[in-house]
C-alpha cells in the first residue's frame, strides 16, 4: 500500500510518540466492505510538544486518537510510545501502558458516569491502580481538583449533572491528570463548550501542560482553536495527512490546496473580511470507496491526471513543513516518483 510518506518523522529517540503506517478499518455491517477510517498515516510527537490534528467530520481524527490508546486496536501499523510498541503489548501490559497516555473526550457530560460522585470519578484511576494509601489518594485528588478550579468539597457531594459543561470538562481533565501521565490526547475537548468557557479550558490546558510537563495531541475541527494551542498542526482529509508543519507557518502559508480551502471557508469575526466566495464545491466522499490517487482530487481546483492516478507522498517544502500534493501552492511540483513509474 502506498503510504503517505514518512519524510517528516524526526530522529528516533527524540520523539515521545512515533506512529508509523497506521491503518484502521471498520467493517460495514456484513457486506464485506470496509470503512477506510485511517489509511497509512505516520507522525511523531516530541516531548513537551503539542500536535494539533484538524480536518472535517469523518476524516478519521478521533479514530487516530483512539488507535493510539488501542481502542480498538488498529488494523496495522506501529505505535511506539516511550520506546514501547503499543500494538505489540498483551492485554495486561497495555492496561499498564494506558496510565501513561490519557484521553479527554468531546462531550464533557457523557464522559462522566452520571451516577457517581465527581470526586469518586476522579479518584477511580488511583483506586484501579492502588496508588498509595486512601489518605494519599484523597490528597492527590483534592490537589488536582483545586488545580483545575473545582471545589473538592463540592465534588465530594455532587453528581456530574450538577456541574456546567465547562466544569465537567475540567473534571475530565482532572481525572486524566491524577495518574500523572506523560501524554494527553484531547479529542475535541472544547467543541461542545460556549466560546467564553472554551477560552477558560484552552488557557487551563496550556497552564497544566507547563505545570505537568505534558505532551499533547489536540484534535479539533476548529482551525483557530487548533492554531491557538498547537506547536505543530497536521491537516487530515479522508483518512490521510495532507500537510503538516509548525502552526504559524502552516496557517500563514498553506501549501496544500485543501488546507487553503479550509482556511478560506472559516467565517472570520470581521465584517470587512471578504465573503461570498465559496472556497470549494461538494462534500467529502465516503471513506468506504475513497477516490484513487490523491483523495482530494474530485474537489481540488488544481487536480490533474497525475492526481487521479498517483497518490502524493509527504515531502518537505520548507524546513519542518511537509505536504502531500503533486501541485502544491508553493514549493514546486512533486518529483515523479519511482514507485508509480
Amino acid at each position: 500500500m502506498a503510504g503517505t510518506g514518512k519524510a517528516h518523522l524526526r530522529p528516533e529517540g527524540e520523539a515521545l510518540l512515533r506512529v508509523e503506517d497506521l491503518v484502521v478499518e471498520f467493517p460495514v455491517g456484513r457486506t464485506g466492505l470496509k470503512v477506510n477510517a485511517v489509511t497509512g498515516i505516520s507522525f511523531d510527537v516530541l516531548r513537551g510538544e503539542t500536535l494539533g490534528i484538524v480536518g472535517e467530520s469523518g476524516c478519521g481524527k478521533s479514530t487516530t486518537g483512539r488507535a493510539i490508546m488501542q481502542l480498538p486496536r488498529p488494523t496495522s501499523g506501529s505505535i511506539v510510545f516511550d520506546g514501547q510498541d503499543l500494538t505489540k503489548l498483551d492485554k495486561e501490559a497495555m492496561r499498564a501502558a494506558r496510565t501513561k497516555v490519557q484521553m479527554i473526550f468531546q462531550d464533557p457530560i457523557s464522559s462522566l458516569n452520571p451516577r457517581r460522585k465527581v470526586r469518586d470519578i476522579v479518584m477511580e484511576p488511583l483506586s484501579i491502580w492502588k496508588r498509595g494509601t486512601k489518605q494519599e489518594q484523597a490528597a492527590a485528588v483534592d490537589k488536582v481538583l483545586e488545580e483545575v478550579g473545582i471545589d473538592p468539597q463540592r465534588a465530594a457531594e455532587s453528581l456530574p449533572h450538577q456541574f456546567s459543561g465547562g466544569q465537567c470538562q475540567r473534571i475530565s481533565i482532572a481525572r486524566s491528570l491524577v495518574l500523572d501521565p506523560r501524554m494527553i490526547i484531547c479529542d475535541e475537548p472544547v467543541s461542545a463548550l460556549d466560546v467564553s468557557v472554551q477560552a477558560q479550558v484552552l488557557n487551563l490546558l496550556e497552564d497544566l501542560k507547563k505545570a505537568y510537563g505534558l505532551t499533547l495531541i489536540f484534535i479539533a475541527h476548529d482551525l483557530a482553536v487548533v492554531k491557538n494551542i498547537s506547536d505543530r498542526v497536521a491537516v487530515m482529509y479522508l483518512g490521510k495527512f495532507c500537510e503538516i508543519g509548525a502552526s504559524d507557518d502552516l496557517y500563514a502559508r498553506p501549501a496544500h490546496p485543501y488546507t487553503k480551502v479550509l482556511l478560506d471557508s472559516i467565517p472570520v469575526p470581521d465584517p470587512n473580511a471578504t465573503v461570498g466566495k465559496v472556497a470549494v464545491e461538494g462534500e467529502p466522499p465516503s471513506p468506504v470507496s475513497p477516490p484513487s490517487g490523491c483523495r482530494f482530487n474530485p474537489r481540488c481546483p488544481n487536480a490533474s491526471d497525475r492526481c487521479r492516478r498517483e497518490e502524493p507522498i509527504l515531502r518537505e517544502i520548507e524546513p519542518g513543513h511537509f505536504v502531500a500534493c503533486h501541485h502544491p501552492l508553493f514549493g514546486g511540483e512533486a518529483p515523479v516518483s519511482v514507485r508509480s513509474a
Binding site: 492554531k227 491557538n228 494551542i229 482556511l263 469575526p269
Partner: peptide, 11 residues
C-alpha cells in the same frame, strides 16, 4: 475570547 486565525499560536 474567540481564538483568532490572525493571532500567533499560544496567545
Amino acid at each position: 475570547s474567540i481564538p483568532r486565525l490572525d493571532q500567533p499560536s499560544h496567545s
